[in-house]
């Protein structure tokens, strides 16, 4: 049975052979008879049909076929021909080159352009509606090699001080020699759907933005650190105001516009010193169309970033696969960072 047969067949069950026969229309009609019923030139029709079979057998290229018959068919069938969709061209089966199509005066719609058109309209739909983006990250633990490039990329991107590292990679070892396995678990902020850190903040300095990222308003935060003890992932860090002064010339001169706020050079006593800080999914990079620094650089190709709300997104697909899980699922925090087993 050809895998590409023209019609689906009924599963063979043996005992039902008769019924099966009854269902199949074995009558074959003579093409000549069919065409004879029409008012058009039979010989042309038959010739075209025979050559069409050659095309399908690969003996004749479809370019050659249409070059051969286009004019004749137009003459024979007139306007009807021009207006009828030409399957070789309009069906976009890719059986005919663009040049030939051009010369035939019909347009070519390729799969890619259709897909692109669909994508574009999808994309537009999203940007119109801000609420449609919920950023999520997927980390494939089979691929994560525990290199900590994400950790350092984050330091360089967000220019966090000593003791503040938005991302860490935890290493877990199990088993006994020689059957030892290690798992590397990167830990950014989970941007929980139900974030305990937000729940406890006395001044709403930390809250969930529409795009799913939990932000910290450095100008409002009083530095009480309640959110730190509340976070089940230890994802929050206090900025004690330390610096790399002795080792890193001018290190405070560059800072990151976290949450879209450019605060200028780092200065003693100025926020975010005295505030709590954490991974912000590189909100500023996302807004300018770049993936987070840790995702961009991930050396194991283990990190994915995307819109969890968009069913076409890679993260959506991965997060809903059976390999996906969240850290401490039973806490009810519902992280927007998913891991793949």
């Amino acid at each position: 049975m050809s895998a590409d047969g023209p019609m689906p067949g009924v599963p063979e069950t043996g005992s039902d052979a008769e019924t099966y026969d009854a269902m199949v229309d074995v009558e074959a009609t003579d093409p000549r008879d069919e065409l004879a019923k029409t008012t058009y030139r039979t010989d042309l029709g038959v010739k075209m049909a025979e050559d069409a079979r050659k095309v399908s057998n690969g003996e004749l290229s479809s370019e050659a076929y249409w070059t051969k018959y286009d004019a004749e068919a137009a003459a024979e069938f007139g306007d009807a021909y021009r207006e009828t969709p030409n399957p070789a061209v309009d069906c976009a089966e890719g059986t005919i080159g663009d040049e030939t199509a051009e010369s035939l005066g019909c347009s070519v719609g390729t799969m890619a352009s259709i897909a692109e058109g669909l994508e574009e309209s999808d994309r537009k739909g999203e940007t119109d509606d801000e609420d449609d983006t919920r950023w999520g990250m997927v980390i494939d633990l089979q691929k994560c090699i525990g290199c900590e490039s994400c950790t350092v990329a984050c330091k360089a991107e967000n220019r966090t001080p000593p003791g503040v590292s938005y991302n860490v990679v935890l290493e877990r070892e199990e088993g006994e020699f020689p059957n030892v396995t290690r798992t590397n678990v990167p830990r950014p902020c989970m941007q929980c759907e139900n974030p305990p850190c937000v729940q406890v903040c006395p001044v709403s300095a930390t809250y969930k933005m529409d795009n799913g990222v939990v932000n910290i308003d450095y100008d409002r935060c009083i530095g009480c650190r309640y959110c730190m003890v509340a976070c089940p992932y230890d994802a929050r860090y206090f900025d004690f105001g330390e610096n790399y002064d002795g080792e890193f010339t001018e290190e405070g001169a560059v800072t990151s516009p976290e949450y879209g706020m450019d605060r200028g050079p780092r200065e003693d006593g100025e926020s975010p010193v005295g505030n709590v800080r954490k991974c912000n999914f590189c909100h500023h990079r996302l807004e300018r169309g770049e993936e987070p620094a840790c995702v961009e650089t991930c050396v194991g190709d283990a990190r994915y970033m995307g819109n969890l709300e968009d069913t076409d997104s890679e993260v959506n697909e991965l997060a809903s696969s059976s390999r996906a899980f969240q850290l401490k699922e039973k806490e009810g925090t519902d992280p927007n960072v998913y891991y793949l087993k």
Partner: peptide, 20 residues
Amino acid sequence: IGRMERLWHVFAWRQPLSVL
């Protein structure tokens, strides 16, 4: 608290779920 000068913030802004 990390930023003593902002103690007053607790009366300016609230969070209904925050015990603190």
